[in-house]
Each structure stands twice: as C-alpha cells, then as structure tokens.
C-alpha cells in the first residue's frame, strides 16, 4: 500500500471505525507517535471493530468507579492504554527537552490541587516562567506512568535539568532553607 492510499485508509479508519474518544486519542497523539506505532494501534482497533461490529472498546469508557480516589471532574480523561516503553520515552523527551518539568494536577495557569499549586507559587516566587507543565489529570497513563518512572508515589513531581527533585514537601523544605534557590542558580535556571 503506497503512502497516499495508506494515509487515506487511516483517515477513513479514524472517521468511521473508531468511537469519538479513540479518535480524540489519535488526533492528540499523532504528533508524538511514530507512524509504525500508529499503524499498529489502528490495526488493533480495526481488528476489534471487525470482530464485534462495534467501534467500541469497553476499556475506553469512563466507569463510575475507575477512580474511587477522585471526583469525576478530576478523573483522568484518557483511558486508552499506552505501552510503558512509549510512555517512558515520552517522559524522557519531556525531561531532557526542558530545563524544568512539573508533573502536576491541572496546569500552571490553573492548578487543581493545593500541592501542585504550591510548587507553581514557588516557581512564580523565583520568576521561573518557562517550564513544562504536564497535567496528569488529562491522561491516566501519564498519571500512573510517571509514578513508576520516578519511583515516587505522589503528584506533583518536579524535575530540574533532568534531575528528579521531589514533590511538594521537598520543594517546600528546599525553598525554606534556601537550597532551592541555590539549585536553580547553579543550574542556570535563574541569575542571582
């Protein structure tokens, strides 16, 4: 199948065979997924479609009790399972490609958790404007994956120059004893 036909086939698949949530997933991830991976994912969904005559995968739907530990509004929106290797690759890209990365609930403009908000406030305090914020509430894979990746059980998680700094308690203590400022000056994040 040549590229043009393949692309048309993919578009048709996206349009007709996948349910809206799955379509959203592919539109969102097309930029970061390799074409081969995308094809593999599409084939999986096509096989599911042809096997049950439904463009649905039950795993993709929000269930009432999927996340007992958070209100429905705050539950991760994406339920499509991503491969752990892909996820870790994505984390590495974010962490290596940005001087500062904050995995948080919500985003820096609108934090959705007091602990995340605290770190955002510390960033503002030191005048750090340019940093990557990753909303873990937007994707269940990211929320659970980053905990494994960092070997750290809670969110938020802060990385500076590829180094894992810690969560809210650590940032708070470092901010109070002056070591956070030392770190960001030493790493060239801010000038003293």
């Amino acid at each position: 199948m040549n590229n043009l036909v393949q692309r048309k086939f993919q578009q048709a698949t996206l349009k007709y065979l996948l349910n809206p949530q799955q379509r959203l997933f592919f539109v969102h991830h097309q930029r970061i997924m390799m074409p081969s991976t995308l094809n593999a994912q599409l084939q999986t969904y096509q096989m599911r479609f042809f096997s049950n005559n439904q463009g649905h995968n039950h795993d993709d739907h929000d269930h009432e009790h999927d996340h007992d530990n958070s209100h429905k509004d705050f539950q991760p929106k994406k339920k499509v399972q991503l491969d752990e290797t892909q996820l870790n690759q994505q984390f590495k890209e974010w962490i290596e490609g940005n001087d500062v990365v904050l995995f948080m609930k919500g985003n820096k403009k609108m934090p959705r958790c007091g602990f995340s908000n605290y770190i955002v406030s510390v960033m503002k305090f030191y005048g750090i404007k340019e940093y990557k914020d990753v909303d873990v509430l937007a994707d269940e894979n990211v929320r659970e994956g980053i905990k494994k990746f960092s070997n750290w059980p809670t969110i938020p998680q802060l990385y500076v120059k590829g180094q894992f700094i810690g969560g809210c308690d650590i940032v708070k203590e470092m901010h109070q004893d002056g070591s956070f400022e030392e770190l960001i000056v030493r790493e060239g994040i801010i000038k003293k």
Partner: peptide, 8 residues
C-alpha cells in the same frame, strides 16, 4: 468532602 474520603 473529598471523593476519596467517601468511597476509597
């Protein structure tokens, strides 16, 4: 009031 308290 949190969901976690009520169910988890």
């Amino acid at each position: 009031g949190h969901h976690a308290m009520k169910e988890h």
